[in-house]
């Protein structure tokens, strides 16, 4: 690991100033991803600004019935919180599907939003990777890409977004609150992460000096009936091959509300708008679910290593909606 300076920020203003004055500075939350990347030499900050003392670790109800989650809330606490479990079960489930208990105890909500891809070519400094080293090429496209994206890909990058939490946040229409010395702004989940295009090293809408301070969840009656389904190679501690965050409201056999997002298959947490569009107002049947899944995956492009994800995603979407319809949210 490259030597670096360490600063512990006592308040938000100090943290923001520290980063605004130093282009080589990075915020340090739980460190579960940044420190790994520093060890691998992928991230090489000159200064690490520890933000874990900042007062951003609260979960609170908003006047409109939504919930505000501080950026420094640990993943384990988020998953266990009664408000989240009751109103947004999909979020609780998604967080618990990620990483391990030890990692969830450390990882923060803000850090999880900024989690970087697990593409092995990104992690291997001897390999070509446009995300790590713009213009160097993509090792994954002609190499191992079983874990890679089939949606939102470009000729420059097919790296999958690894987060589970973000998939649930996408389905829930979450809004990310960010702050810099220039002020506060709110970014909807749908535009927070950027598809790779020709600039895969630019992963989010954040400027380098902006700090994620909170995530807001709007009130949603649909979200109370929601689940997260993660398909992976082992029962725990593995990234998703395919994951589905789904919220469903059905009245008299007709879909009256739906929120759907996919993980493991896309370069960003993938809001499934085509599927949602196909479902709203449609009869809540296996056939509608399947058709919606097909609509969502229609633009998907697979490579020999990951083409299976297209069918796996169709099946996972259909099965998750079916289960929501018949069993509702998990207990």
């Amino acid at each position: 690991m490259r030597p670096f300076s360490y600063v512990s920020a006592p308040d938000v203003a100090t943290a923001l100033r520290a980063v605004a004055d130093d282009p080589g500075a990075k915020f340090l939350g739980g460190g579960t991803n940044l420190v790994d990347l520093m060890r691998a030499g992928i991230e090489q900050p000159d200064t690490v600004v520890d933000i874990t003392s900042l007062p951003l670790a609260e979960i609170g109800e908003r006047p409109d019935g939504g919930v505000r989650i501080g950026a420094l809330v640990r993943n384990s606490r988020l998953a266990a919180h009664p408000l989240i479990r009751a109103r947004y079960p999909v979020l609780s489930q998604a967080v618990l599907a990620g990483a391990s208990a030890q990692l969830r105890n450390m990882a923060t909500v803000g850090g999880n939003l900024l989690q970087r891809t697990r593409c092995p070519y990104f992690y291997d400094r001897t390999a070509a990777c446009n995300k790590r080293e713009p213009g160097s090429g993509c090792g994954a496209i002609g190499g191992f890409n079983r874990g890679h994206a089939v949606l939102g890909v470009s000729g420059a990058c097919i790296a999958a977004h690894p987060s589970d939490m973000c998939v649930a946040l996408a389905a829930l229409d979450a809004v990310v609150e960010v702050e810099s010395v220039r002020g506060v702004r709110r970014v909807p989940m749908a535009s927070f992460h950027r598809p790779p295009g020709e600039t895969p090293h630019v992963e989010t809408d954040l400027s380098p000096d902006e700090l994620v301070t909170a995530v807001e969840l709007p009130p949603s009656p649909t979200a109370a009936n929601s689940r997260y389904r993660k398909v992976r190679d082992r029962a725990s501690y593995a990234f998703a091959l395919v994951s589905v965050a789904a919220a469903l409201e059905v009245r008299d056999g007709t879909v009256t509300g739906v929120g759907l997002a996919l993980g493991g298959v896309a370069t960003t947490p993938w809001r499934a708008r085509r599927a949602e569009h196909a479902l709203l107002g449609a009869p809540a049947t296996e056939e509608s679910f399947r058709r919606a899944a097909e609509a969502e995956l229609a633009p998907a492009t697979g490579l020999p290593g990951n083409a299976f994800k297209i069918e796996m995603a169709r099946r996972a979407v259909t099965a998750t909606l079916r289960r929501l319809l018949t069993e509702g949210s998990p207990a």
């Binding site: 092995p120 070519y121 291997d124 001897t126 390999a127 090792g139 191992f144 190679d233 725990s236 501690y237």
Partner: peptide, 27 residues
């Protein structure tokens, strides 16, 4: 679940760690 990924283009092992080489977990 276990499999060492050796890139057929250059013989480099691409999953040299327990996050990506999947030994069974307790579950």
């Amino acid at each position: 679940s276990e499999e060492t990924l050796v890139d057929p283009r250059n013989g480099r092992i691409m999953n040299p760690g327990l996050a990506d080489y999947h030994v069974p977990v307790h579950a």
